[in-house]
Nucleic acid binder design. Sequence first.
DNA 1: CGTTTGGTTTCACTATTTGAAACTTAGTCT
DNA 2: AGACTAAGTTTCAAATAGTGAAACCAAACG
Lengths: 261, 261
Amino acid sequence: MGAEGHADGTVGKALDVLDMVASHGRPVRFSDLLAEADYPKATLYRLLQTLTHQGMLTLDPDTGTYALGVRLVRLAHAAWSQSSLAPIARPYLDELARETGETIHLAQMDLGQVLYVDKRNAAKPVEMFAQAGKVGPAYCTGVGKAMLAYLPPEALEAALARQSFHRFTPHTLASREALLTELQAIRQRGHAWDREEHEAGIICCAVPILSRQGRVMGALSVTSTTARTTLEDLGAQAPMIRDIAAKIAAEAESWRFPEQV
Amino acid sequence: MGAEGHADGTVGKALDVLDMVASHGRPVRFSDLLAEADYPKATLYRLLQTLTHQGMLTLDPDTGTYALGVRLVRLAHAAWSQSSLAPIARPYLDELARETGETIHLAQMDLGQVLYVDKRNAAKPVEMFAQAGKVGPAYCTGVGKAMLAYLPPEALEAALARQSFHRFTPHTLASREALLTELQAIRQRGHAWDREEHEAGIICCAVPILSRQGRVMGALSVTSTTARTTLEDLGAQAPMIRDIAAKIAAEAESWRFPEQV
DNA sequence: CGTTTGGTTTCACTATTTGAAACTTAGTCT
DNA sequence: AGACTAAGTTTCAAATAGTGAAACCAAACG
């Protein structure tokens, strides 16, 4: 097996290469990719050729560099508007942003990581990590923990296995045990805190977005700074956040089965 | 539409399936896909399984439907922010929208079709076809013709081969010859018109976005309606549009090779 | 209940993929 | 210039992975 185990078949490898190109923020040369991939030269070459031919990558003939292709941009639009909760949640996020004046995050779970799918900036914006389209750790963010807490056992297990438990701040829950205890507490409380566990000075209150059958669809959070507010104040908003999460869930579900008649 | 020829290898087929899922605006069932794909049952099944396993699709276990997955959303975001001109062009589009008060389109070429990568709505919006993330025909849109006009011979040939030359309106240039003559005129004039060639009542003025080496990176257009303005009035804006296109090109290029020194 | 519909698995057959190595440019260094 | 080097492209027999008709299973139907 290679670096990561899960490259099943040619398709897996091709997608792996796609990810590699995506992860560099700029066009990359063949040899750069060759250096970090552990595919043989010829294999990598053919994969790149196929992807380029398919429009998933673009080869700039002048510089000999590969970049993500337009076909992905096209898929992007489709992905955004159908797979994620974003389009449904949009008006609710606006509402929540208006009500709280704080930063709002909408996230979904991506193989044990948190994917931020939409975001509203605070009235007075603050620099912080999360951005729409970015991924972050699950074990030390509000939205991440909110989702983990409601995952079914096997899914939780799979997600836990992918956590690095890196200690970002003194408050980070940097062990499986600490996290499990916290998840228990979250289930009882109904919402998750982030007590400066990922970034110093950043706190948040997050709730899961659950389907009627209890499946985790995503999470919603209100984020602020210790300079501006306290956990208690944020907690006062929890019922409203939960309420909005419920509305999003309801609408997302009715969306899923139209045209059935 | 249907069986496109160019599905090279397994990767091609898998991506083809991805597109199929994307093209439905909602989660699809296996059998729906089976009906429109001309892959045998087992093959389609395995492709879907692979894609799902890879996180490019999600299988909703409750409804047995496939939707685009989070990994795709992540890639899509990366594609948007690095491959496309959109992030660079954003402030310029805002400026142009403010100046003209009309609808602005930013497009790139995607295998002979036009891909709208960003858009600004007119002060008084009008219903029209184009939308960010959508694709449209190249031979009968302003941005399409602006790009075609500056394509190198082989690329132009490849693009022409993919045009359907469907006559959308009485003004559509519905033949290869008519289009070639028009492209010639566009090169001389420096910008392209859309004289209600795609949608009745919709006119536009478009300019290509060219790299220093003359490579076509995209196109920019200002669109309006015959009810509101005339080609002449739109034409008066051409210098400004061209100016902004040049700025975008310049910035896009400086973006492409940093860290090199 | 027997039947249909929708989804999953099998398995012999084949076509695709593989990757070491040879080859081709295009640059660099004496 | 010629000899070396680095970067990208092509080859080809062996190995692997993909194919798809058909069998199978499980709900849902009548």
